[in-house]
Design a protein around this nucleic acid. Structure first.
Lengths: 160, 160
DNA sequence: GTAAAACTTCAACCATACTTGAAGTCAAGT
DNA sequence: ACTTGACTTCAAGTATGGTTGAAGTTTTAC
């Protein structure tokens, strides 16, 4: 009824969920989960089996990257929505997408550096009281919004 | 029956859970949770109310720091167990503890840099296939242990 | 003395990111 | 033909890191 090559796009262009799992190293359950959440899409055979265009491997790679950077699946979904839907995205389009993370990575590295300083200087020296430490308690923004410790560690304040 | 200063260690040395919450910015529910998990300890009044020695604020600060670095509460608990139990830790002891994270922070920064390169170079240029990319697929270790995508992103392989 | 605020425990709930298992269908190999 | 493996859906379970709410007690303030 269906062979692995009977697709309008040419021979061998689609992958089963198992093949995609092997190629990406992501479990089939995770791939189905991503599809549920709208991060990837599949065509279906007449009998309901998933068939992924080859281009989806790149999409999955992007998801794994993005997760390591610290984005949630929902955030990643939003990013991926910016890609064209009908055709495989061009390298340029992937690049535009990923460029937006540069700032985020920089911010995270900056925070880690701050933490590193905090660990060596602050905790050791005794100022780590969460009340007086200059590294942690930047401008008392935390108190202003009652948002807890995340503030003194570099998060943006988000007033209600 | 009990005043805020009737403690053998001197006047005003202990904090209620609410006071500790205010001082640290960590919710009382979280503080109780940490206590449940063995990250902090409290004395109890005759009626069962918690009383924290002042030194615990530093411990809470350490917890918050450590979480931002990426440690789980369980890992943090293990670290904190290395501190002396009877007396407040000295700055030197805190320093020794936090020094162990330096490597971890460095590793994480290195990974973020790798990701940043991967994002700008790899995804843009088209090699992000999880099969051929040199940045991602370092030495086919992933295949060797079947451990999924985390490998090509810099994690250590942990054979079963 | 009394009301409100703060505290207690315990169980249930929330979100994220999945995995696992049940029950059944489809595809491939011999 | 038939077995095995891969696939399907859907519900429930897992782990982390808490929050929320109920029911009751204690402390504080007036």
């Amino acid at each position: 009824m269906e062979t692995s090559w009977d697709n309008a796009e040419g021979p061998f262009v689609t992958l089963t969920v198992g093949e995609l799992a092997k190629r990406t190293g992501v479990a089939t359950s995770a791939l189905r989960f991503y599809e549920d959440r709208g991060l990837i899409r599949s065509q279906r055979t007449e009998t309901g089996h998933r068939r992924y265009p080859r281009a989806v491997t790149r999409r999955v790679a992007f998801i794994v990257f993005a997760q390591r950077v610290g984005l949630t699946l929902e955030e990643i979904r939003c990013e991926l929505e910016k890609l064209p839907s009908g055709r495989p995205p061009r390298g340029e389009e992937w690049a535009r997408l990923s460029a937006m993370w540069a700032q985020r990575i920089d911010d995270r590295i900056a925070e880690l550096r701050r933490l590193q300083r905090g660990l060596s200087d602050c905790i050791g020296c005794g100022c780590l009281s969460l009340e007086r430490c200059q590294i942690l308690n930047k401008g008392d923004r935390a108190a202003a919004f009652g948002a807890g410790p995340r503030f003194w560690l570099g998060d943006e304040p988000t007033p209600p």
